[in-house]
């Protein structure tokens, strides 16, 4: 019984929080490149391109995750794990929304 170590918990935590974690990394990246990019000598067009690339990558990752969560929810036995996948799915969906409205900001506001 003692064998249930923290490894399982970390996996659990990561599978639950993957969506928001992707959002947070994405947010740090776009804020970082817009805030600090100039100081590193990046041209505004390069910064924009980078930010869009990050947006697409984050969006794609979240959609993939969403699909994965859906599939696992359908296939995995009821009870415990189902809850994780459901919570993870919702969190991913919310994170996707958050990424999309960041994209809105990127679309509308010039650098």
């Amino acid at each position: 019984m003692i064998g249930v170590g923290p490894g399982g918990f970390v996996r659990y935590l990561l599978s639950m929080l993957a969506g928001p974690l992707i959002w947070f990394i994405y947010f740090s990246v776009i804020y970082g490149v817009v805030g600090f990019g100039g100081a590193f000598g990046f041209a505004p067009s390069g910064i924009r391109l980078f930010a869009w690339a990050a947006t697409l990558a984050a969006g794609a990752a979240l959609i993939l995750l969403l699909w994965y969560a859906r599939r696992s929810r359908a296939s995995i036995e009821p009870k415990g794990p189902r809850a994780v996948h459901e919570v993870a799915g919702f969190l991913t969906a919310l994170s996707l929304f958050a990424v999309l409205i960041e994209a809105l900001a990127l679309l509308i506001v010039p650098l």
């Binding site: 409205i101 809105l104 900001a105 509308i108 010039p110």
Partner: peptide, 24 residues
């Protein structure tokens, strides 16, 4: 809790961002 705020907030944010961008 999800759909209604997502829609209204996106609309409002668009309005707000257009005004923000115009400052430039």
């Amino acid at each position: 809790g999800v759909l209604f705020p997502a829609v209204t907030l996106t609309a409002l944010l668009t309005y707000g961002l257009i005004l923000t961008g115009a400052r430039l």
